[in-house]
Computed example of a mutant assay.
Amino acid sequence: MRPAKPLPSSLRAWAEQAVGPLSCVRDASHPRENSRVWDITDSLGRRFFVKQSPTAAFYERETFGYRSAVPALGFGRAPRLVDTDARRLAMLLTAVPGTPVSRLTLTVPEHRAAHRQFGALLRRLHGTEKMPAQGRRAAEAAAERTAADAGKHLARVGDRLSGNRRALVRRAADHVLRLADLLTPGHIHGDARERNALWSRSGPAAAPAGMRSSGRLSMIDFERSRYAPVVQDFVRLACGPWQDRDDLRTAFFQGYGRPLTDAERQALPCFAALDAVSCLVHGPAHGEHEVTERGLRTLDRLERGTFL
C-alpha cells in the first residue's frame, strides 16, 4: 500500500481562505505518483476536493472545462469550481455524491441505467449543436495530432509489438487522417470511463427526461477535457465495459440520443488502436500494468476482428 500524501500547508491555508477551517483531510489521490487529490471537510460538515494538476496543460484544460462546458451537465451532475490558483496549479471543487461505477456491483437494470445516463450527460457535455468555429477547428487538429502521435509511440514501444500489429496501428492512423474532417466535433471529457462516473442510489431520481431510474449518475475528473471528435469519448468504454456487454453500449447510445455515424463507426476502432499503442508506452514506463493489459486486449480484439 502506498503512503498517504499529506495536504501541503500552503494548499490547506489557501483552501481555508475559501471555506473556513477544515475538520478533516483525506488523501484521495489515484495510485500513481503524479496524482494529487484530497477530500476535505469544513467545520460545517461540507465536503470539497483540492486537486493539484500534474502539469500546466492539465490545469488549463480542466479549469477551461469547468468554466465552459461542465455547467451544461446541470446541477449536481459534476463538481463545481469554487476557486483556482494558477501558480500552484490547484483547484477547489465541490463534492458530488456517489461511488465510481467501476467499484460497484450493480444489478443489470442499474448498470444499464448508469450507462444510459452516461450517454445523456456526455451528449450535453459535447455541446456539438453550439460548437464555436474555433472548437471545430481545434477538434479536427486534435484528430490529426492523435494520428501523428502514433509514429512516436511506435518508435518508443520497441519489440513489444509484432510487425502485424505495427502495420495495424499505421493503417489506423492513416484512416483517422482521412476521416478527420468528417467526424463530429465536441468538447469531450477525454477520460470517459466507469472510474469517472459516480452512481448514487440514494440521490434524487431526476434522471434526464425519459430516463427514470432509481439512481443518479455524476461525472468527475475533467483534466483531459478538450475539443476533439466526440467519438474519442467512446474509446475507453468500448475497450472496457462494452467488450462483453452489448446491452450497456445500447443503453449508452439510447441516452446519447443518436447512433454512431458511418464515419464514427470507422473511426472508433482506429482511435482504439491508437489508444492501445499509447497504453503500451505509458503502462510499462509508469508501472501501470492495467493500462498495459488494456492496450494488449484491444490490439488482440482488433486483430481478431471482434472489437465491435
Score class of each variant (00 low, 15 high):
Arg301Ser: 10
Arg156Ser: 11
Leu168Phe: 01
Glu60Ser: 12
Arg195Pro: 02
Ala238Glu: 10
Glu290Pro: 01
Leu179Phe: 08
Asp246Lys: 13
Leu81Ile: 11
Pro229Phe: 09
Ala120Met: 05
Val277Ala: 02
Ala207Lys: 03
Phe271Ile: 07
His289Asn: 15
Asp39Cys: 06
Asp246Thr: 08
His286Met: 12
Glu290Lys: 14
Gln52Gly: 00
Thr306Trp: 02
Val108Ala: 14
Pro31Lys: 07
Ala192Phe: 10
Arg77Tyr: 01
Tyr256Leu: 07
Gly127Tyr: 06
Leu93Asn: 02
Thr94Gln: 09
Asp300Asn: 09
Ala142Leu: 00
Val19Gly: 01
Cys279Thr: 05
Arg32Cys: 13
Val108Gln: 07
Ala273Glu: 08
Val50His: 03
Ala206Arg: 14
Arg47Thr: 06
His187Phe: 15
Asp244Ala: 12
Arg61His: 13
His189Arg: 02
His282Gly: 02
Leu168Gln: 04
Pro109Ile: 03
Arg32Asn: 12
Val231Tyr: 00
Arg112Trp: 01
Ala192Trp: 01
Arg124Ala: 15
Val82Glu: 09
Arg87Glu: 12
Glu144Ile: 12
Cys239Lys: 01
Ala173Gln: 03
Leu125Ser: 12
Ala28Gly: 05
Met91Lys: 12
Arg36Ile: 01
Arg216Cys: 07
Thr298Ile: 06
Trp199Phe: 11
Asn34His: 13
Arg301Val: 00
Leu81Met: 09
Glu303Pro: 00
Val70Pro: 03
Leu237Trp: 03
Thr55Arg: 13
Gly45Asn: 13
Leu89Met: 13
Ala206Asn: 14
Gly76Ala: 09
Pro132Ile: 03
Asp275Arg: 05
Glu223Cys: 03
Arg123Phe: 08
Arg12Asn: 08
Cys24Leu: 11
Arg201Pro: 03
Arg201Ser: 13
Ala28His: 07
His286Lys: 14
Arg226Lys: 12
Arg46Met: 00
Ala69Thr: 03
Gln232Gly: 02
Met131Val: 09
Ser202Met: 11
Phe252Asp: 01
Ser102Asn: 11
Gly163Glu: 10
Ala273Gly: 10
Arg301Pro: 06
Thr128Trp: 06
Glu110Asn: 12
Pro204Val: 02
Ala95Arg: 09
Ala263Gln: 00
Glu110Ile: 09
Arg145Leu: 14
Glu129Thr: 14
